[in-house]
Amino acid sequence: MNPSIDLRLRSMMRAITEVIMPAVDPQNSLAQEQIRLLLGHLHALSLQVTHAPRLAAIELNELQQLARELLTHAVGGPATQRAAARVTALVGGSDHAALAHAVEALLIASGEDGGAEFKNDAETRVLAFSRAEVLRGRAWFKAMGFDTNPERLPDIPTLLAAYDRTKEIS
């Protein structure tokens, strides 16, 4: 649909840079900081916007897969069983945030009364899952400049293409 989101984002950045920024009082440090943050956000958004639905789908799919794997091995006492039941209720749905909360709660409950084998298995699986999740997050927000090794991170299209290749192989 025209005007495209990309065009509108670029137009906003140009207006901020060329019109609004020079008009902001240089002595107003809060306003100066805020305007730079807005430009930074818009730049990051311009890199992310076309890929956001794809990333959300990947994130949900990966989380559901982790949840199902954990459920397969979820042995323990009442706390673990209650938390596992909550994961079971959510794993087929599309509420990413709620499922993620439930998986987190299952891991905490496993510390109370989870079976030793389940705890070891969960640790291995969650660490492997988290490595991939964190890499996606760092790459997604690379433009925001917090990463100490940005040169080692893929850009967003490369990240998503690499994910697709992995899935084809598996």
Binding site: H101, E104, A105, V126, S130, E133
Partner: peptide
């Protein structure tokens, strides 16, 4: 405060408590 859960945070809490 968390708007969305993060499995690693659950694992970390378990580790800290142990």
């Amino acid at each position: 405060d968390a708007l969305c859960g993060i499995p690693l945070m659950g694992l970390a809490e378990r580790w800290l408590r142990e």
